[in-house]
Design a protein around this nucleic acid. Structure first.
Length: 357
DNA sequence: AATGCGTGGCG
DNA sequence: TCGCCAAGCAT
């Protein structure tokens, strides 16, 4: 084993945190943890993982679950296609692999939601196979060790990182090595103000030697994010409110919301915007009664300011033919998975009585 | 291959 | 307050 791997594994053995997916590390638990950890930090994932495992303690339980319940347990974690893909993949494994997660990298890669990182992570951590992981932590650690100045994402850099990861990976304990690099990146070799004094690799780190660690890795500047004004309708009737389910794919796919949409140039007012959106999306005519809060939120690629309004249906309007809407009492809103803003609106509804008919 | 996809924590 | 960043994947 190379000296770097030996040093790092020694550090890991002495410092590795106790994490739920490290105790009782079944392939299923490791898989779920890796999907949840995608673009999401360890501290955020822990409570979600615990709840998920309590409800779906094995692959078969997950495969047989309702999609709605899976989504509900995922609410707040974001990137909801992960939940859809995980659920689909569990059903696929149950049908075609007799409930056993495949052992090979190539087979893992065919599962929906499993890409090169997660396939390597499962193969190495669950099945002790020598596949190097290359996530954001590993990239940062290797870029600093080698003092690489190229911006993230450039092909030459990616190739170099892949070769380096391959070269460092020990045949023994590949899964622990991968986790050690990631945990070093998360706790010591952090994006801002890394704790180089505590780093077991300080003496071989070229960025530390040059004093460049704080400016690595380099990135391309991100384009400015657009800001939209959005309206949402809280349509009430007989002490119930109308919610609508979003399309299965795309932003907040499959989640429930208070219907509405973006303010367009032709809208002369927020009220105008909301009436138009409800007409276009649901074919319903509404009366906009009263403001119900202003909400700010930042998604990955844009920001919104959302104006919610209490509304009522005009006489003669019916929702009977609409498949993706439900009338629910405020207390029931908890049963429907929602994004953050709509959940805030739902909570406010649960705290304030609806207007009397 | 460039872009869309959530949310929370941090400085 | 606000931009940055995170155990990436799909298309």
């Amino acid at each position: 084993m190379n000296a770097l791997a030996a040093d790092l594994l020694r550090w890991y053995d002495a410092n590795a945190r106790v994490l739920p997916w490290r105790s009782n590390p079944s392939p299923y638990r490791i898989w779920v943890s890796e999907v949840m950890l995608q673009q999401t930090q360890v501290e955020t994932v822990i409570p979600y993982f615990e709840r998920f495992m309590q409800r779906f303690s094995n692959l078969e339980a997950l495969a047989k679950a309702n999609q709605a319940e899976v989504l509900q347990l995922w609410e707040g974690l974001g990137y909801y296609s992960r939940a859809h893909n995980l659920h689909k993949a569990a059903q696929l494994v149950l049908q075609k692999h007799e409930g056993q997660l495949p052992h090979t990298y190539a087979e893992l890669l065919t599962l929906p939601g499993v890409g090169s990182y997660i396939a390597s992570a499962i193969a190495s951590i669950a099945f002790q196979q020598p596949f190097p992981t290359l996530d954001a932590n590993c990239r940062r650690v290797y870029i600093r060790l080698l003092n690489l100045q190229a911006p993230l994402g450039t092909p030459a850099l990616e190739r170099k990182l892949g070769e380096y990861a391959e070269q460092l990976l020990p045949q023994e304990r590949p899964g622990d090595f991968n986790q050690a690099v990631m945990e070093l990146g998360e706790r010591i070799c952090t994006p801002k103000t890394p704790l180089c004094e505590q780093c077991p690799l300080q003496n071989i780190c070229q960025a530390f030697a040059q004093g460049t660690q704080n400016s690595l890795p380099q990135r391309y500047a991100k384009p400015p994010v657009p800001h939209y004004t959005v309206t949402a309708a809280v349509i009430t009737q007989d002490q119930q409110v109308l919610i609508a389910q979003r399309p299965a794919n795309g932003l907040l796919g499959g989640l429930w919301e208070f219907p509405g949409g973006k303010l367009e140039p032709q809208d002369v007012s927020l009220e105008d915007c909301l009436k138009r959106e409800i007409r276009e999306e649901l074919g319903l005519e509404i009366t906009v009664e009263k403001e119900f809060g202003v909400y700010h939120h930042a998604y990955t690629h844009f920001k919104i300011t959302l104006h919610a309004f209490l509304c009522t249906l005009l006489p003669g309007q019916s929702t009977d033919s609409l498949r993706h809407v439900r009338w629910v009492k405020p207390a029931q809103l908890t049963d429907f998975a929602m994004g953050k803003v709509d959940r805030q609106i739902a909570r406010r509804l649960q705290q304030s009585p609806l207007p009397a008919p």
